[in-house]
Amino acid sequence: MDSVTNRIHDFKSNASIIVKSFNSEYKKTPLRIKVIDAFIVYALLTAAIQFLYMLCVGTFPFNSFLSGFFCSLGFFVLSVSLRMQVDPSSTEFKGLLPERAYADFVFCGCLLFLVVWNFMG
């Protein structure tokens, strides 16, 4: 019994540490990145909601479900990529202009919409 409560206590304290330090660290990220982060979370949430809806209601227009789900997922992926590209703290993309990264993002987004629109049926 004791060990279990101990563990839970441990876990709780750990979790609070994580949340706290995450909050404090996250405040340092620039605003632009925060906006992208918000969009990422939004896209992920949309995907999750669609998936839940599919579980509850059924897959019937499978085309529509797939295209909707993949659309949100696709935007999630694209914006994660964008975030990694424009993140000033990363060293991998030194030579890349943020403008170029945004242009690529828009292009890929258009392509994604085209494909989804084609598949929606």
Binding site: G74, V77, V80, S81, M84, Q85, E92, C108, L111, L112
Partner: peptide
């Protein structure tokens, strides 16, 4: 991050 950019959009699209 490059691996991610090469792989993930390709899978989705």
């Amino acid at each position: 991050a490059k691996l991610y950019i090469a792989y993930a959009p390709l899978i989705i699209l």
